[in-house]
Amino acid sequence: MSDTAEILREHLGKALWDTCTMVGIATVVGVVFGTALAVVLYLTQARLFTPNRLVNTVVGFVVNAIRSLPFLILLVVLIPLIQLCIGDPYTPAGGAIALSIAAIPFFARIAESAFADVDPGLLEAAVSTGAPLRQIIAGAVFPQALPSFIRGIVLTVISLLGYSAMVGTIGAGGIGDLAIQYGYNRYETGVLIAIVVLLVLLVQLIQWAGDRLALRFTH
């Protein structure tokens, strides 16, 4: 028990910081670029805007191709690319790059689904007024899709939190690395239990905050 407490005291703070950094960077990158892809998919599919079957098919194929890979396989595939970019892929920075690439197509489909749920009647009314496309997207589509959009961000953060634990299996830092290096390899069951409890609490807190925020913006 004393060994477990000592390990947690020395390493948990840094491991938690590395995880939060990786997940935070990946969430921002995933939401920004994923939203951009979602807008392209939405606009090229919706008949009210600028339907383009070729663009929609190509972008959709790329998104689905990346999403079809389990994250652990994607992580292994990306190691040479990450090594080319930053030198050492077995760091929190390398983990953040891998998580970001996984987050973009994941969030793109979530955001596209949120946009698709917007009331078509509202969009037809907006188009009939002659409003420019940018104004329709910013003033009608995004506000109506915002609750689903927020829930999608929450789902992305929680998924990335789980993915970050897999990053630890290659020694890239974070609480997953702590669980593997100390909890599993050194047979410190207390470390594993502490990390499981921490992950459960983090997910509950994130989900609670996300639900409250989404409810606030529900029309």
Rank of each mutant, 00 (worst) to 15 (best):
R109M: 14
S68V: 07
E188Q: 15
L201I: 14
D18T: 04
F142V: 15
A140W: 01
I79L: 02
I66E: 04
V196G: 02
P120I: 00
G60P: 06
G95F: 09
S148Q: 10
L81S: 13
V191S: 08
S100F: 05
I170V: 15
V62Q: 02
K14D: 12
R53Y: 07
A179M: 07
L75K: 04
G183E: 05
L198G: 08
V141D: 05
A98F: 00
I86Y: 02
V55F: 04
I195M: 13
L81N: 04
S148P: 00
A145G: 13
L201Y: 01
N56A: 15
A36L: 15
L84G: 04
R212A: 08
P105L: 09
G139D: 09
V196H: 01
G190V: 08
G34E: 14
I79N: 00
G121F: 07
V28P: 06
F115K: 14
F106M: 10
P70M: 10
A126D: 01
L78Q: 13
A36P: 00
D119C: 03
V59W: 13
P147M: 13
G190P: 09
L43M: 10
A26W: 13
V127P: 03
L192I: 15
F149V: 10
G168E: 10
C20N: 01
Q45K: 13
V39Q: 10
I104P: 03
L37P: 00
I136Y: 06
R216E: 01
Q45I: 01
V63Y: 12
I101E: 15
G130V: 11
I195G: 06
P120Q: 01
I206G: 03
A145Y: 06
G210D: 06
M22S: 12
P132T: 13
E6M: 11
F142Q: 07
I97F: 03
A108M: 12
P132L: 11
A172N: 12
P105R: 11
V200E: 04
A103G: 08
A179Q: 03
G174D: 06
K14R: 08
A111F: 14
G95E: 12
P80A: 03
Q207I: 00
A145E: 05
I97S: 00
Q83L: 02
Q181M: 14
G210A: 09
V23L: 10
S113H: 05
L99D: 02
V196I: 14
P132R: 06
W208S: 09
L123R: 11
A172E: 03
V141I: 15
N185T: 09
P89E: 03
G121T: 05
G121V: 02
L48H: 06
G174K: 03
I79R: 00
I137K: 06
L84M: 13
F149N: 11
P132F: 05
L213H: 08
I25V: 14
L48M: 11
T91Y: 08
I86Q: 07
T156S: 12
V167H: 08
V197G: 01
F217Q: 04
R109P: 05
S128Y: 07
D177H: 08
P120Y: 06
I180V: 11
S2C: 02
V23K: 14
E112V: 09
S68G: 04
V76C: 07
V29S: 03
I170F: 01
S113I: 10
V62K: 01
S159W: 12
F33K: 07
D18G: 01
I79C: 00
P132Y: 14
V62C: 08
I180H: 00
G210N: 04
I7W: 02
E112I: 05
A179C: 07
I79Q: 00
I7A: 08
